[in-house]
Amino acid sequence: MNKKYKKLILSIVLDIIGIIPIPFLDVIWAPLSGYLMTKMYKGKQGKVAAIISFIEEAVPFLDVVPTFTIMWIYSYVFNKEKVEKIIEF
């Protein structure tokens, strides 16, 4: 399986983890999701996505937004020519 599709599967799994409706989990998951986003997606896009991911997980009722999967789509569908230059996770 290609690295990009492994990253897609990981993104979906991380989004599912973020949907779990346990308030205490959000306190731990919000900063962790931001950190993981910076590790999965390098550069300015990864940093911006990490901030968005942190806010999305920290604010109640926004947990349903699939931030990791949206970032994968942005990286590999809309911005694919630049991704090939960025070091993979």
Rank of each mutant, 00 (worst) to 15 (best):
K7I: 12
N2W: 03
G18E: 03
I86M: 13
I16R: 04
K6Q: 14
I87Y: 02
L14D: 04
F54G: 01
A58S: 13
K7L: 15
P21R: 10
I70L: 15
W29F: 14
L25Y: 12
F54V: 00
P21I: 09
Q45N: 12
I52K: 05
G43S: 02
S53F: 06
A50H: 05
F78W: 14
F89A: 12
V59K: 00
Y74Q: 08
K44H: 09
E56F: 13
A58I: 10
G46D: 02
F89L: 09
W29I: 03
F89I: 10
F78R: 07
V65G: 05
L25I: 08
G46C: 08
L10Q: 08
T38I: 14
I28F: 15
K4H: 14
S53L: 06
P21N: 06
V64K: 01
L10H: 02
T38M: 15
I17S: 08
G46S: 07
M40V: 05
G46K: 01
E81N: 14
G18D: 04
E84I: 13
V77C: 12
F61D: 03
F24H: 01
V13W: 07
V59A: 09
A30R: 03
G46L: 04
K82G: 06
I55K: 05
D15H: 09
V48G: 03
V83T: 13
F54D: 01
I16H: 04
F68K: 06
G18F: 00
W29H: 01
K42W: 08
F78E: 10
V83P: 00
I20A: 09
D26G: 11
P31Y: 07
E56L: 13
A58F: 13
M1F: 11
A49C: 11
V27W: 13
K39F: 07
M1V: 14
I17C: 15
G43V: 04
F78A: 10
M40H: 08
T69M: 10
E88P: 00
E84V: 13
I12K: 00
F24E: 08
M71S: 14
S33A: 15
L36F: 15
I28Y: 08
S11D: 06
W72G: 02
D15Y: 10
N2Q: 10
F54Q: 00
P66V: 01
V64E: 00
G34T: 07
A30T: 06
S11K: 11
I20S: 04
K4V: 01
I22G: 01
Y41R: 05
T67P: 00
I86Q: 13
N2M: 04
Y41S: 08
N2A: 13
K7G: 00
I16G: 03
L36T: 02
S53A: 15
